[in-house]
Structure formats: C-alpha cells, structure tokens
Design a protein around this nucleic acid. Structure first.
Length: 205
DNA sequence: TGTATGATCGCCT
DNA sequence: GGCGATCATACAG
C-alpha cells in the first residue's frame, strides 16, 4: 500500500531555510486536493522582507505560534499566500509555498482556476491557494490535524535534486528560494547556473 | 481618521 | 517587458 507518511511537528521545529529545502518533493493537500511541492521560500524574523520582521501583530500571530500551522494572508487585495510556521514557538519564521506539481484533484483545481492546463494550476503562491481554495478562513490551521495535509515523499521515490536561488520580489540576495531541479511546474525557472557549473554545450529550454 | 503599500497575476504591447 | 486591479494591514497624525 502507499499510505502517505504525515510530516510530524518536529519536522517544522527547525530553521525555516532547512524546512523549506526539505519540503521539496513532499506532498501538500487541502481536502485531498494538491500535489508535490516543487518550490518554496524561507522567511524569518531577522529578515527585512518577512512579515514578522517588525514583530508580532494580529495578522502575523500564527507565525509566532507553534510550528506546523498554516499562515494565510491576502496580498494586493486579491491574492492569498500560504505559509507554514517553522522553528521554535515565538521565533516568527515560516516557509512560503510557491508551487506544486498537481497530482490529486485535478478537476477541482481546473474548475477553480478556470483552466485545465496543468502548468497554470499551482505554479505560483496565489495560483496554488486559488487551486486548493485556501483563504483567510484557513489561517491558523494545524497541519495534519485539519483539512491541510503535508506528507513525506514515498521512500520509493527518487530524492529530488534541489536548487537554491534568491527569492522572488525580495531585495535580499540570500538563496532562500528552493526548487525541484528541472521541474516544469515552478513559478519561474531557476536563474542560470554559473558558467563553471554548466554542462558543456548545455542550452536552456 | 487617513494614506501608502505589497512574499501576485493576467492581460497588453 | 510593462502595468493595473483592489483591500487588509500597518503606521502616522
């Protein structure tokens, strides 16, 4: 059988960048709809680009609570973004879920997104929440103790190759964005590797 | 009470 | 590659 292995709260009781990297390849579901995580970003309280940088507020309270809880916020007045609180309670750190490879509930996702094109279902933080119908009503839910599920990759699966890069729409250059190497389902391709890392004759595409 | 702003997306050129 | 949509939140007064 292929019973999925739920990620335990201790998985999230670590620095956000470690959790963000290790979430690549795991499965994220809301009411059974979702797929394989192919892109994440880490944020913590010492990070000027983080919502928690200026301390605890009513909005970001979940990020300062116990780990393994969902932090949802509205951005640009129309899009939702979903994060998982990480680190020790009170640390104000989390991981933004940026893209999934759609695997479960494709019809539900297509209906919500208004397209059946798999690449347009979950390739971006707002597309992901739209496809899974995650809204402010889900803010504060405990992972794996609610309609939100996070599961380890099957032991039989090939461990994903993970690429780190600077985060999107953030000035800070630290490589806290993590991608499944070569996935077509990320929101944007990873920046080109340095010339020294490239295979001879390699071309993008 | 008023105002500036954003961890985005989709449509336009 | 550029830009507008649209509003909860944060912060100044």
């Amino acid at each position: 059988m292929l019973q999925p292995d739920p990620l335990q709260p201790s998985f999230f009781s670590r620095p956000a960048a470690d959790v963000a990297r290790d979430l690549i390849g795991c499965t994220f579901l809301a009411d059974g709809v979702g797929g394989r995580i192919v892109e994440t970003e880490a944020y913590d309280q010492h990070d000027p680009s983080s919502h928690t940088y200026r301390g605890r507020t009513r909005r970001n309270a979940v990020m300062f609570g116990p780990p393994a809880h969902l932090y949802v916020y509205l951005i640009y007045g129309m899009h939702h973004c979903a994060n998982i609180a990480c680190g020790e309670e009170g640390f104000g750190a989390g991981v933004l879920l940026r893209a999934l490879e759609p695997l479960a509930g494709l019809e539900s996702m297509a209906a919500r997104r208004g397209t059946a094109e798999p690449r347009l279902l979950c390739s971006g933080p707002a597309r992901l929440t739209h496809a899974l119908d995650i809204t402010l009503a889900d803010n504060g839910l405990a992972v794996n103790a609610s309609r939100i599920g996070l599961f380890a990759a099957p032991a039989s699966a090939t461990p994903p190759s993970v690429v780190a890069a600077p985060r999107i729409n953030v000035r800070d250059p630290r490589p806290w964005r993590f991608l499944a190497a070569g996935s077509r389902f990320v929101s944007r391709s990873a920046p080109r590797q340095s010339d020294g890392d490239r295979m001879p004759g390699a071309r993008r595409g």
